[in-house]
Amino acid sequence: MTFVVTDNCIACKYTDCVSVCPVDCFYEGENMLVIHPDECIDCGVCEPECPADAIRADTEPDMEKWIDFNRKYSELWPVIVEAKEPLPSAEDLDGTPGKLDTHFSEKPAEAA
Score class of each variant (00 low, 15 high):
residue 1 M to I: 14
residue 4 V to N: 05
residue 7 D to S: 09
residue 7 D to I: 04
residue 8 N to H: 06
residue 8 N to D: 13
residue 11 A to K: 01
residue 11 A to N: 05
residue 11 A to S: 13
residue 11 A to W: 04
residue 15 T to A: 06
residue 17 C to N: 09
residue 17 C to W: 03
residue 18 V to N: 01
residue 19 S to T: 14
residue 20 V to G: 13
residue 21 C to I: 07
residue 21 C to A: 06
residue 21 C to L: 08
residue 23 V to P: 11
residue 23 V to K: 01
residue 24 D to S: 13
residue 24 D to H: 10
residue 24 D to T: 05
residue 25 C to H: 05
residue 25 C to L: 07
residue 26 F to G: 07
residue 26 F to L: 10
residue 27 Y to M: 01
residue 27 Y to I: 02
residue 28 E to H: 03
residue 28 E to K: 03
residue 29 G to F: 02
residue 29 G to T: 03
residue 30 E to M: 03
residue 30 E to P: 00
residue 30 E to F: 06
residue 31 N to D: 11
residue 32 M to Q: 07
residue 32 M to N: 12
residue 33 L to S: 00
residue 34 V to P: 03
residue 34 V to H: 00
residue 35 I to C: 06
residue 35 I to Y: 04
residue 36 H to R: 03
residue 37 P to A: 02
residue 37 P to M: 01
residue 38 D to A: 15
residue 39 E to I: 09
residue 40 C to K: 02
residue 42 D to C: 15
residue 43 C to P: 06
residue 45 V to W: 15
residue 45 V to G: 15
residue 46 C to A: 10
residue 46 C to Q: 01
residue 47 E to L: 08
residue 48 P to V: 14
residue 49 E to A: 14
residue 49 E to K: 11
residue 49 E to Y: 12
residue 50 C to S: 09
residue 51 P to A: 00
residue 55 I to T: 02
residue 56 R to F: 14
residue 58 D to R: 00
residue 61 P to S: 10
residue 61 P to N: 11
residue 62 D to H: 14
residue 64 E to H: 08
residue 66 W to K: 00
residue 67 I to Q: 02
residue 68 D to P: 04
residue 68 D to A: 11
residue 69 F to Y: 11
residue 70 N to Q: 00
residue 70 N to P: 00
residue 70 N to G: 00
residue 71 R to E: 11
residue 71 R to P: 05
residue 72 K to S: 10
residue 72 K to G: 09
residue 72 K to L: 13
residue 72 K to A: 11
residue 73 Y to W: 10
residue 74 S to L: 01
residue 77 W to T: 04
residue 77 W to I: 04
residue 77 W to F: 06
residue 79 V to D: 04
residue 80 I to T: 07
residue 82 E to I: 08
residue 82 E to Q: 15
residue 83 A to E: 15
residue 83 A to P: 12
residue 83 A to H: 10
residue 83 A to N: 14
residue 84 K to A: 06
residue 88 P to G: 12
residue 88 P to K: 07
residue 88 P to Y: 08
residue 89 S to F: 04
residue 90 A to I: 03
residue 91 E to W: 02
residue 93 L to M: 09
residue 97 P to D: 12
residue 97 P to Q: 14
residue 98 G to H: 09
residue 98 G to N: 12
residue 99 K to I: 08
residue 101 D to Q: 10
residue 103 H to F: 11
residue 104 F to A: 06
residue 106 E to A: 15
residue 106 E to K: 15
residue 106 E to F: 11
residue 106 E to Y: 08
residue 107 K to M: 08
residue 107 K to H: 07
residue 108 P to C: 01
residue 109 A to F: 02
residue 111 A to F: 14
residue 112 A to R: 15
residue 112 A to L: 10
residue 112 A to I: 09
